[in-house]
Simulated scan of single mutants.
Amino acid sequence: MIDSDELDDKFGIEGEVGFMEMDGELVFINVSNKYADADICLYGAHVTSFRPVRTMEMLWMSSESNYEEGKAIRGGIPVCFPWFGPHKTDSSLPQHGFARLMYWDVLATKSLPNGETQVDLILKSSEETRKYWPYDFEAVMHLTIGTTLTVTLDVKNTSAESFEYGCALHSYFFISDIAHIGIEGLKGLSYLNQLTGETGKQDEDVLQISEPLTRHYQNTETPVAIADEGFRRRITIEKAGSKVTTVWNPAEEACAGMGDMPDDGFANFVCVEATASFDYMITVAPGESFQTSQVFGVEE
């Protein structure tokens, strides 16, 4: 059992970092500094809120989300590791890997000289993780809360042999209406359409979404932005250590079939994800590390 008081005594920073039980018995880290507020759940190392001081919430959370062990949290930034989507050979294994279904330990909290706040969470290989994946590893989530939110998954291979893994920072962005946004920065990129299995190339300057969409844009590290007319803001998204950008919105019919999402939830989020999968998996030699990161900002 995780003791939020003990964590507060060891890692709390007065007026800036605190620990508390929220949404049932799950323990969250609450961060508040001069730039932004953020909430991070230790279950899954899952960021559930990022609120810059002069604007509204940037992340979308489902009002029907589960907050209990054994079930993934819907919304925010789920951490997919060590695979993305269904397991390649065993469909009984959890969708998107096991990292989002386990408690991570607090490694460090720090008040940075510029007023930003850093939180580091760690998940190490164990008997439990080896039930799903045979390798030894240390995965650290580095989170920096400031004028932007920086989310970095740092994976170290502590095995005696190389391993390959996939991952994603499965970010749900809060938008005014899916019908009134455009995603910039994808023109000219080739993509896999997961819904049809076909490949394509985007010719439009701006991606607008009016139907179910799951696209995996290939071989790209290009920054993108979500232009939101209703909220009069642009969410900027930069990434590194990822060659695939996934864009997802289930639209009305599929959304209505999801038990942890309200029927109209599709209208107020879009996922834009830094992904490593398909032909762009990550290979790490023994003793080596690899980082996948995203940086989120807002322009009004």
Rank of each mutant, 00 (worst) to 15 (best):
residue 2 I to R: 10
residue 3 D to Y: 05
residue 7 L to N: 05
residue 8 D to H: 11
residue 10 K to F: 08
residue 11 F to Y: 15
residue 12 G to P: 04
residue 14 E to F: 07
residue 14 E to A: 06
residue 17 V to R: 00
residue 20 M to G: 14
residue 21 E to A: 15
residue 21 E to H: 11
residue 22 M to V: 15
residue 23 D to K: 11
residue 25 E to T: 15
residue 26 L to P: 09
residue 27 V to C: 13
residue 28 F to E: 15
residue 28 F to Q: 14
residue 29 I to H: 02
residue 32 S to Y: 00
residue 33 N to Q: 06
residue 33 N to R: 02
residue 37 D to S: 09
residue 39 D to R: 01
residue 42 L to D: 04
residue 46 H to S: 08
residue 49 S to C: 02
residue 49 S to T: 07
residue 49 S to H: 01
residue 56 M to I: 06
residue 59 L to A: 05
residue 61 M to W: 09
residue 65 S to G: 04
residue 66 N to L: 08
residue 68 E to P: 02
residue 71 K to G: 12
residue 76 G to M: 04
residue 77 I to Y: 05
residue 80 C to I: 08
residue 80 C to L: 14
residue 81 F to V: 09
residue 82 P to Y: 05
residue 85 G to N: 12
residue 87 H to T: 03
residue 92 S to T: 13
residue 95 Q to M: 14
residue 95 Q to T: 13
residue 101 L to T: 06
residue 103 Y to R: 10
residue 106 V to D: 08
residue 106 V to T: 07
residue 107 L to W: 07
residue 119 V to T: 05
residue 121 L to C: 11
residue 122 I to Q: 14
residue 124 K to S: 11
residue 127 E to N: 15
residue 128 E to H: 06
residue 130 R to G: 03
residue 132 Y to E: 12
residue 132 Y to C: 08
residue 138 E to M: 13
residue 138 E to P: 06
residue 141 M to T: 12
residue 143 L to A: 06
residue 150 T to L: 07
residue 150 T to R: 10
residue 151 V to H: 09
residue 154 D to F: 04
residue 154 D to V: 04
residue 155 V to P: 03
residue 156 K to Y: 03
residue 157 N to C: 07
residue 158 T to M: 12
residue 160 A to M: 12
residue 162 S to I: 06
residue 165 Y to D: 07
residue 166 G to F: 00
residue 169 L to V: 08
residue 171 S to N: 03
residue 174 F to W: 08
residue 178 I to P: 01
residue 181 I to D: 10
residue 187 K to A: 15
residue 189 L to C: 05
residue 190 S to R: 09
residue 190 S to A: 11
residue 191 Y to N: 10
residue 194 Q to V: 12
residue 195 L to R: 07
residue 195 L to N: 13
residue 198 E to W: 09
residue 201 K to Y: 05
residue 202 Q to G: 05
residue 202 Q to E: 15
residue 208 Q to A: 06
residue 208 Q to T: 15
residue 208 Q to F: 04
residue 212 P to N: 13
residue 213 L to M: 12
residue 215 R to L: 06
residue 215 R to T: 05
residue 218 Q to Y: 04
residue 222 T to M: 05
residue 224 V to S: 14
residue 225 A to H: 08
residue 226 I to Q: 03
residue 228 D to N: 03
residue 233 R to N: 06
residue 233 R to M: 02
residue 236 T to H: 05
residue 242 S to N: 02
residue 242 S to L: 00
residue 244 V to W: 00
residue 244 V to L: 04
residue 246 T to V: 15
residue 247 V to P: 01
residue 247 V to I: 14
residue 253 E to D: 15
residue 260 D to R: 10
residue 264 D to F: 15
residue 266 F to W: 14
residue 267 A to G: 03
residue 267 A to R: 15
residue 271 C to V: 06
residue 272 V to W: 03
residue 276 A to F: 01
residue 277 S to M: 08
residue 278 F to C: 00
residue 279 D to H: 00
residue 281 M to C: 00
residue 282 I to Q: 04
residue 283 T to C: 01
residue 287 G to F: 07
residue 290 F to E: 01
residue 290 F to Y: 14
residue 291 Q to K: 07
residue 291 Q to D: 00
residue 300 E to C: 11
residue 300 E to T: 12
